[in-house]
Design a protein around this nucleic acid. Sequence first.
DNA 1: TCCGATATTGCACACGTGTACAGTTCCACG
DNA 2: CGTGGAACTGTACACGTGTGCAATATCGGA
Lengths: 331, 331
Amino acid sequence: MSNSEKPTRKVTSFDVARRAGVSRAAVSRTFTPNASVSPETRDKVVKAAKELGYRVNYLARGLINQRSDFVGIVAAGMDNPFRAMQIEQITKNLVRRNFRPILLPADHGESADHVMDQLLHYNVSGVLVTSDAPPTALCAEFAAAGVPIVLINKADSIPAVDRVVSDNDTAGRLAAATLIETGARHLAVMSAAAISYTARRRQQAFLACCHSLEADVRVIPVKINDYANGFAAAAMLDGVDGVFCINDYMACGLVDGLRRRGIAIPDDVRIVGHDDVPQASWAGYDLTTLRQPCDLQAEQAIDLLLSRMDNPETAERVEVTPVSLVRRSTA
Amino acid sequence: MSNSEKPTRKVTSFDVARRAGVSRAAVSRTFTPNASVSPETRDKVVKAAKELGYRVNYLARGLINQRSDFVGIVAAGMDNPFRAMQIEQITKNLVRRNFRPILLPADHGESADHVMDQLLHYNVSGVLVTSDAPPTALCAEFAAAGVPIVLINKADSIPAVDRVVSDNDTAGRLAAATLIETGARHLAVMSAAAISYTARRRQQAFLACCHSLEADVRVIPVKINDYANGFAAAAMLDGVDGVFCINDYMACGLVDGLRRRGIAIPDDVRIVGHDDVPQASWAGYDLTTLRQPCDLQAEQAIDLLLSRMDNPETAERVEVTPVSLVRRSTA
DNA sequence: TCCGATATTGCACACGTGTACAGTTCCACG
DNA sequence: CGTGGAACTGTACACGTGTGCAATATCGGA
């Protein structure tokens, strides 16, 4: 209908004010919660805004408010299906709470620092980190800028940085107990402990529990906790009849590797994974595993973020995500 | 070392200017590419900036430049592993080009509109959409605001909206040819054609090719193109010995469902999937499938975004992502 | 020495918004 | 009718930055 209106300047609150016959402040107040505007002027403003297609410029608002609606998510290893679940839950939760998630992949080594450095340019309200833990110096810069950081399943204590960790101790204990209970006598744990805090922690808990039960245990080292390494590790299981895989991603590989070699699951080898990835419940795997409720974990992490936004001076907190055993057919 | 410096005001270009003994404009020019600053003042500014921990406020910069570094990604169905790959490639590509991806999940019906509406508040440089196509009215608003939109694998033509679509025609043809070539005589295609443009298109191409070859074909309707529906559909294959699954996600379900019923693959039933998801190459599936190179697809989509940013007035373009057959053991 | 051209600098304005402050209106109550 | 207070409105400033314009400094050549 309307002709081509080339010089479509961005419509501002000033335009709306003029059209509604009020001051620009009235427009601002109309779109600011808990501001004082009479119903009549509000109506006039809303009407004019709708006619003009006006939207508040959140960048300008963030400038004046000293805080934006952005939350950074720093993630690595997105090939792991668990990471996909995690990111989905986190982003949905953030959007539900009216934040905008800005997602930064940080795979190759030092890029995590670089990428987080970028975030300091945007007045983000907070940062969630699921990749390697950022260096302490950088964390200090965020703290100085008043930007809370929450680490998910990562690393040891850093000053002024909150953390959410899944209950790795219980996980290790449950894994050992389940394997033994289902008949395993020669246990093993598979993990690239050097890489990840989580892997290291679960491995330790598993070993500790096995030792306390005086069970026979070995460590099967892998380079990375992924499918390929799990598959390859099937060749290194002589004399083992029960394996705890640090995550399901790797466990799927192990299952396929064992089948390829004609080894029966769970009769010859029992397997317990971790995470309860979607593939774990696929009929092809039907993996006994430890469920890590990443919807709850996302909730916890974002709660921590908000509470530190409100009072930044509190001591760092650690929230533990509960773990529960999901019994399926591999153990 | 330094004492607790509570009133840590955000450090601005003004602070840097004072410390370096220059004007604020000099600071701005130092951090603006292709600006005119002498090497000496630049050095002074850089030194002062480092000492103070100064970072350019990109929100303010975006305000003055009328454009931010943000690119919106609207995605649905993140449980599908292909979506995870897609998002990983897109975000990595964007970050490499110095954009910040803001990821908005849009699963439940109308929320895509709502979520995209939010983006108009942020002066985003562009939007990539992999969920359902946004309504035409909304697209017009983006066009008016000068914000390019690129649809990935979605919907039909919308004015001023560029698209990237994978080569669905070739996919359907290759699938049919491969199934027949490997001995199938009674074909079927599985897809929730009502839901998705891509599914509809691939199905059509497959049927057309079968008809032209005078092969026996059926359509097996499902509600959603996911694992569970693929698994359940294994019960509906009487007399079928070759199936084209619209995506690998569903194909994995079908494979597991058939195995459960004792049906041999590929001897009794041949299967061709689509996407070449990571699971397709897992030993447990070893799926013959059509590879859709989503790294290339991301590149194409972002190229379209950039080229429309430069000249917004051009007619809408459609880029086709090539598809290639990956022969594995299911066909 | 003088002059024109070039490189560099600072001033001042603009981007679009939130809100303190003072001023105005209006109403209820004495 | 007078008055106090509540509700509302507009003015003016602030947020942190990029850049046009004019002014100044520098330099090479005649």
